[in-house]
Design a protein around this nucleic acid. Sequence first.
DNA 1: CTCCATATTTGACATATCGTCAAATATGGC
DNA 2: GCCATATTTGACGATATGTCAAATATGGAG
Lengths: 217, 217
Amino acid sequence: MAKAEDIESVTAQTGRPLGPRALKTRERLMDATAELLEERSLLDISVVDIARKVGTSPATFYHYFKDVEEVTVHLADRAADEMPAVLDLIDGSWEGDAGLARARNIVDAFISHWDTHHAVLQLRNLGADRGDKRFIRIRRDALGPVLDRFAEQISEAQKAGHLPASLHPYIAAAALGSILERLSAYHKELTHFGASREDVVETCAILIFRTLTGTNS
Amino acid sequence: MAKAEDIESVTAQTGRPLGPRALKTRERLMDATAELLEERSLLDISVVDIARKVGTSPATFYHYFKDVEEVTVHLADRAADEMPAVLDLIDGSWEGDAGLARARNIVDAFISHWDTHHAVLQLRNLGADRGDKRFIRIRRDALGPVLDRFAEQISEAQKAGHLPASLHPYIAAAALGSILERLSAYHKELTHFGASREDVVETCAILIFRTLTGTNS
DNA sequence: CTCCATATTTGACATATCGTCAAATATGGC
DNA sequence: GCCATATTTGACGATATGTCAAATATGGAG
């Protein structure tokens, strides 16, 4: 599970490893990009914009990154660091009310995660769906463990006869992941329908709980 | 429900309505953009690329569109024209096996729809999630009627006591929409897990059926 | 503290795109 | 065949891209 942000892999475009000063500059370039992504589309962000914001020259940018998209790859990597915390919420019993509470916590964590990294996560999925290996790996590393646990839980529910055998556990798990990601991505738009964030959490939690356990409570 | 592609609204950047020759040129520019979107990211598509592909000059492009993103708006509009066919699949009884078969057809239609317009639909959602009014309207027009029907069906299942009252019908419907969209977007990646397209359709159909009716069959 | 090897940054440049005109050209009704 | 107007484009200044070789900063050895 080698992560792209492992120290040894942080190099200049030349392949050379970076010293402390360079690391700081690279960091500032990434931060500036993340901030610009908050306010406008990737389409409207140029290398010059980023360089200007950091108070450096475009040439410096190109010393560290091939293009702006490559910065988003590393930003996605950085966002993925939060996922272990979500995994902690998954492990444990899914029986009854405890299971439902667990589902609520997961949904809540996902929404917060997306609220914090909206633009970057959206670009990650865009890239991954387009077939970009870098983004596919990052998404798999982040989401895979979650889906694995979901799939395992679904399998158990199937063995207990609570869910039909024709359900493909991993695909069903991916479907739950889809709900989490998609609703997290646009839950704010849903509030225009008179639905609060709590409503989103509650409804989403119920659907996940029901699909993981096959029970109705 | 005024659509952006209504004839009267197809104008040059100056606001002037377009004659037959101009309409054809505009069409070719849109087609060229759609083709380019098949092979590379919007980031890597310049106005010059599109103009060259059509065998015209950049100035001509700017006569019809503000920028490349505006073309994608109209492409998204065009893709939305297919949705009425999906709506036909939704209406009718959701009881028993007929309901499950109905779900299968819907999933199948969605996956085909996304396979055909992948890049454009992805950009539509990207724009809409970012708050762009143009894309929000297009998505709402396309998905709203589907979600409305889902929500209505869920309400009925609640009244019949098959689903918990704490479920917010419209959010649950949006969750189903999320499954449809997200799995349609990356179902090809799932097949690397030994899951066929049929598996995706079947699993997705079961989940939708169960959530719409609250029954287990 | 000074010097120097090397890490880091940048100015300068050739190339390309952007976006806007006013001017050129095509069209179709008379 | 003429002309009003619909459509296209050549030309251009401004801005961005991407690559050097050269300039500057740093920190460890002496």
